[in-house]
């Protein structure tokens, strides 16, 4: 089923493509003269940018000893001679290729990236030669979606000549430059994730001594001073004898995974989903809930031996966690 809107959108697309296709085969820019003749300074700057130290590009004396007999321009500098300087690519030109570019930009395909280049070099260019060129729009693609975005490929062919003959009436083809670009709309980028802190510790009159211990990297267990029963988490009274008197002992830090779950959902930005949550039976006999770190969540097993460590999640949040240890320990 297609909706009316979809049909309209398809028709608009087809109409736009038909307008683009009218540009195929158009010869634009015939016999355009290069802005500058092939010259030493431009060659030197280019060779320096490339790090190419071949002296045949820059040293006339050396060049005389070569089969060229004189300085030549690097072959891959071909395109440089037909560039139009700082105003290249600005809207407002009247050549067919510029009108084509304006059309696709107007349609929202404002970004550009080069995708292919094919060159032929008939002979090297020499100092003082001024090239001229013809440009042809070879193909305009239908709308395509790539990794970068959605748009149209445009292929142009530039034939590059040097005038020869007594009255300079002949044109010698010295090179060809076929270039394909993608004019596109970039994919929408996902907004950057803000820093989402983990939930804060809940500190109250009962739990404060526990968290003070964590700050000193100690895992404290509450102990009833009447009957000696250990308890965790901290609470006001003994579950065994109801006494309100207590002190603490520091856990040795070793335990065994008693049970565990893996959290897949809901997705909390502060957590690396999915992650393991385990109930750990400390060697002292009490159990505590914590994260298992150091192994993938799906390798956590009941009975694993684990050791206490402290994880600093952010400037204000330090929490105990457990990491598997040598299973003999």
């Amino acid at each position: 089923m297609t909706t009316v809107e979809e049909t309209d959108a398809q028709a608009a697309k087809a109409e736009f493509l038909a307008r683009l296709k009218e540009f195929e085969g158009l010869h634009c820019e015939s016999g355009v003269l290069a802005l500058d003749p092939v010259n030493g300074p431009m060659i030197r700057h280019w060779a320096e940018a490339m790090g190419d130290t071949n002296p045949v590009y820059t040293d006339a004396e050396f060049a005389k000893t070569t089969h060229f007999g004189e300085i030549v321009a690097p072959a891959t500098m071909l395109q440089v001679w037909i560039m139009r300087g700082l105003h290249a690519g600005q809207p407002g030109g009247d050549s067919p290729v510029q009108r084509l570019y304006d059309l696709v930009v107007e349609a929202g395909f404002g970004s550009v990236v080069a995708t292919n280049c094919e060159q032929e070099y008939m002979r090297p260019l020499r100092l003082g030669e001024t090239v001229e060129y013809d440009q042809l729009i070879e193909t305009v693609s239908e709308e395509k979606t790539t990794g970068l975005g959605t748009g149209h490929f445009i292929t142009t062919l530039v034939n590059i000549f040097v005038r020869t003959g007594e009255g300079a009436e002949e044109r010698e083809l010295v090179g060809t430059h076929r270039f394909r670009i993608l004019r596109y709309t970039p994919h929408k980028r996902k907004p950057k994730q803000e820093f989402k802190p983990r939930p804060r510790r809940v500190v109250n009159r009962d739990s404060k001594p526990f968290w003070d211990g964590v700050d000193e990297e100690k895992l404290l267990i509450q102990r009833c001073t009447e009957c000696g029963t250990l308890r965790l988490p901290f609470g006001p009274g003994c579950n065994n004898c109801a006494s309100l008197e207590w002190d603490t002992v520091e856990a040795g830090g070793l335990g065994t995974i008693y049970s565990h779950v893996t959290m897949h959902y809901p997705k909390f930005p502060a957590f690396d989903m999915p992650y393991a949550v385990a109930l750990i039976e400390l060697d002292e006999g009490v159990r505590t809930l914590s994260n298992i770190v150091g192994i993938p969540h799906d390798e956590v097993r009941i009975g694993m031996r684990v050791a206490l460590e402290f994880v600093q999640h952010d400037a204000d949040l330090k929490l105990p966690a457990f990491r598997p240890v040598d299973q003999e320990a």
């Binding site: 490339m50 190419d52 071949n54 045949v56 590009y57 089969h67 060229f68 030549v72 690097p74 072959a75 891959t76 990236v113 080069a114 995708t115 292919n116 280049c117 094919e118 060159q119 032929e120 070099y121 008939m122 002979r123 090297p124 076929r178």
Partner: peptide, 21 residues
């Protein structure tokens, strides 16, 4: 393409060259 031109030691030896970006 300097891998080619440095190999043959003649910058005019490359007569055709094409790439995809």
């Amino acid at each position: 393409v300097r891998v080619v031109t440095d190999w043959v030691e003649d910058p005019a030896a490359v007569v055709e060259y094409s790439v995809k970006f």
